[in-house]
Design a protein around this nucleic acid. Structure first.
Lengths: 177, 177
DNA sequence: TATTGTTATACTCTATAACTATA
DNA sequence: TATAGTTATAGAGTATAACAATA
């Protein structure tokens, strides 16, 4: 579907550019330059849930990244911290499975979170192959702050699509969490 | 949020693995290995629209890729073909902007679609810097088939979340198309 | 033998910058 | 100068395979 995932660094994206004149020409085709974005037909795309969901997901991640930019926490990091916080002692495999992250990728995510002293890997007493994951004291404090910022982000979502729609959405998609 | 986006090449992903026994132990902690996925608390994550949307988007893309696997068309390719089909003569910049794809990335996408003779880049008569994009005859025929498969995919979505919920979703997210 | 964490590789996607040819 | 298409590079993220330690 469509791309473009990260922060809009220049933050001008779709503001006031394009005066939005001219309907499409009489004849057969359009003469390229003067065709505005929202005059370009989406055709079948408009009826595909995946297209809308993808565009929305991009918007929502951008807002999350922007809102938690000051603390340098991205959505995946937030989800890992949250799950460890709620289930201390979990193994890496368990976290990876629960969140649908590759275990190979989780290794790097945890390396970074451990370097920032938010998470610690303890040797499991019962199975010495695995690590028991815990938040550090600092991690718990930090997570509380991240949560407040994430709640702010969530308010942005509610503003964007409406409070009731947000709740309806959560309900419709509850099977996917 | 959570990762894991592409085709499950080996297609075993989450089938029948995990017998799903044991409730969590009595004592203080859990002894890692025997904690099943759905016993792991999500905590704040469950209330975040972004998390659910991300998981849903992964599911929906996987189904799209699987359903259109025989014709080797991925969501982004489908969106590009659809927009060109509905707006012949469009420039690369216009397509990129409309779909939120980087123009640098669209170059490669079009290279591949042009090699498969689904799309052709014609020199624009009015602005020799730009290309006028068109579907080839073959591209039009192929797109009709892709559309039928995409409709099948869309029926999978309706089965998964319910017909009415799918429509509600499209309505809620209509601002993002 | 199988599993956990790890390392490494390849491929997709995103974000940028720079180049060229035009305007 | 600015824009369209292109090339190149760096960084996430994903998919795999393989290895060491342990079960």
């Amino acid at each position: 579907m469509a791309g473009n995932s990260q922060m809009p660094k220049t933050a001008k994206s779709r503001a006031g550019l394009q005066p939005r004149f001219g309907r499409k020409q009489a004849g057969n085709g359009r003469s390229q330059g003067d065709v505005m974005d929202d005059e370009i037909a989406l055709d079948a795309l408009a009826g595909h849930a995946g297209y809308a969901v993808r565009r929305f997901q991009i918007w929502i991640f951008q807002d999350f990244i922007r809102t938690l930019g000051a603390v340098d926490i991205r959505p995946t990091q937030y989800s890992v911290l949250t799950v460890i916080g709620a289930n201390p002692g979990l193994s890496q495999m368990a976290v990876a499975k629960r969140l649908g992250i590759e275990r190979a990728r989780l290794v790097h995510l945890l390396d970074s979170l451990e370097q920032r002293e938010l998470v610690s890997r303890l040797r499991s007493a019962t199975d010495r192959r695995s690590h028991a994951l815990h938040l550090t004291a600092r991690g718990r404090t930090a997570l509380a702050q991240f949560r407040r910022l994430a709640a702010e982000h969530e308010r942005h979502v509610a503003e964007k699509i409406g409070k009731e729609n947000r709740e309806r959405l959560l309900q419709i998609l509850s099977a996917f969490t």
